[in-house]
């Protein structure tokens, strides 16, 4: 978050996720879409430069959902 603020973006979405996973976890397409949609929404909603939006999901939760999706995928072959 400190890095995001430092670069003074016109608008940004901050994700408290592991490096290399800014759009979520493998095969969790719903989460990946949600993250992009949140970013696109800031294009229209941000009212002043420096808008940083905190994405409301923690890494542990994303990872857990990803694991569930992967076990379903492997169970279905």
């Amino acid at each position: 978050m400190d890095v995001t603020e430092h670069i003074k973006p016109p608008r940004a979405v901050f994700l408290p996720f592991m490096m290399g996973h800014h759009f979520g976890v493998p095969f969790h397409t719903r989460l990946q879409r949600e993250i992009i949609l949140t970013a696109l929404e800031r294009i229209e909603r941000a009212e002043e430069s420096g808008d940083v939006f905190y994405f409301p999901k923690i890494w542990a939760q994303a990872r857990k959902e990803g694991k569930e999706i992967e076990s379903r995928l492997s169970a279905n072959g």
């Binding site: 592991m18 290399g20 996973h21 800014h22 759009f23 979520g24 976890v25 493998p26 095969f27 397409t29 990946q32």
Partner: peptide, 9 residues
């Protein structure tokens, strides 16, 4: 993660 699903990054 990206090596299994590039879309994460």
């Amino acid at each position: 993660g990206a090596k299994r699903d590039l879309n994460v990054i």
